[in-house]
Amino acid sequence: MASLSPRLYRFARLLLQIGALIVIWLAAVQLSEHWLHSLPPTVSGIAIALVLLGLGLVKREWLTDGATWLLREMLLFFIPVVIAVLQYRELLDGKLLAIFLVIIGSTACVMIATALAVDLAWRIEEHFRHSDEKQS
């Protein structure tokens, strides 16, 4: 019993943290449904959590374990959605090669453009940081 209780305590704490994240999500869903129709809950949920954390009403340690668990096991939550592709067999039939080409080509474009743009943005940032330091 004595060796089990710390593990039980950790497990209960994890469930409680996941429960808290679910409550924030449900609040975000209500918010988009009744008040802010153009703000999707995927965005407002993060915003609510950030406001709670920013105001100090919720401490990050209260949510960290639950959040880490949800993000680590997120693959499990995708599976039913991925399987739903079975319903679209006719639409995909004979087009798999083209789809792969689109994904490979476009992903290469995204990666090259993003990396070069961010490198350039970093140089601009450094430039302004140095000129700020000279002024002060």
């Binding site: 999500w25 809950p41 949920g45 993060i46 959590a49 949510l63 960290t64 959040a67 949800l70």
Partner: peptide
């Protein structure tokens, strides 16, 4: 998946 998106607030913070 919904609650999992809320969890993204933690790395941002």
């Amino acid at each position: 998946l919904g609650p999992a998106t809320v969890a993204f607030a933690i790395p941002i913070h």
